[in-house]
């Protein structure tokens, strides 16, 4: 679904990525982890076309985003949804207008249908409809993330990009957001590209984890296998006290479920 080959990103003399390869399969949740400054966000921005890489190719749905013509690229871009780290809701619009905007611009539907669809998306992400007409400023952190998710889903994308969706949420809110993401992803069969620091959500939602270090992807595999991968940074990331706690709690949850 997403295919990155030979990606190189360079800012001045600082090389962030060098010959980076990564594949995301259809219908999976791939989480990308890495230390601060390892270029997770740059990778995401390169894939969705906000940053033009120095070299390499990015293919979404089999279309090379760097060489495709405008109309082909836009068709693909309408097929992806992005949830930015701080939500990036438009502060001059209220909640429902934020969700309606992409549909208004990209479809020829009448106003009522657009409003209905936006409302249904808000309901889908677990928001009560009375938040629809409130201003963006009055929302809490968790609600901002949910509205942003509703906006990302409004064009019915096949691929969803999430940049640290649980950052800044309290554990309860983060957990609820993970649940929501899983439910929606399973029901809609979305392909999800997730950048995160949150170890709990890493274990909970991801099908595979890609570790970004030394300017490339060190390993891509299931959480259990990645956690046991023999590399010092990965070991200190996953086998540190926080990593262990997250692993244990996830196992407990699974046993509890069974």
């Amino acid at each position: 679904m997403i295919e990155v080959t030979g990606l190189r990103n360079q800012f001045g003399s600082l090389v962030v990525h060098d010959n980076l390869d990564l594949q995301v399969r259809r219908g999976e949740i791939l989480a990308v982890v890495g230390g601060s400054g390892s270029g997770k966000s740059v990778l995401l921005r390169s894939i969705i076309g906000l940053h033009r890489p120095s070299a390499g190719s990015v293919r979404l749905n089999g279309i090379d985003m760097l060489s495709a013509d405008d109309s082909a690229r836009q068709a693909v871009e309408q097929n992806i949804g992005v949830l930015f780290q701080k939500g990036a809701l438009y502060s001059s619009l209220d909640v429902i207008e934020n969700v309606m905007l992409p549909l208004r611009e990209h479809s020829d539907l009448d106003e009522r249908s657009i409003r209905d669809l936006a409302m249904s998306k808000l309901a889908l992400v677990g928001l009560r409809t009375d938040v629809a007409n409130t201003t963006v400023q009055s929302l809490s952190g968790g609600m901002i993330k949910r509205v942003a998710l509703a906006r990302a889903l409004i064009l019915e994308p096949q691929i969803l990009f999430l940049d640290e969706p649980t950052a800044g949420l309290d554990p309860v809110g983060a957990n609820a957001f993970d649940d929501l993401l899983l439910t929606i992803q399973r029901a809609l069969g979305l392909t999800v590209f997730l950048v995160t620091h949150d170890l709990d959500s890493l274990y909970k939602v991801s099908d595979r984890i890609a570790v970004l270090a030394e300017k490339r992807v060190l390993v891509v595999d299931t959480p259990e296998r990645v956690a046991n991968f023999d590399e010092p940074w990965i070991q200190s990331y996953f086998q540190g006290p926080r990593g262990r706690a997250a692993q244990v709690s996830q196992q407990q949850e699974k046993e509890h479920g069974n």
Partner: peptide, 14 residues
């Protein structure tokens, strides 16, 4: 993402 695109393409997916 999609909001940054020009409006001309709106009929394509429909």
């Amino acid at each position: 993402m999609s909001v940054t695109q020009p409006k001309q393409n709106q009929s394509a997916p429909h």
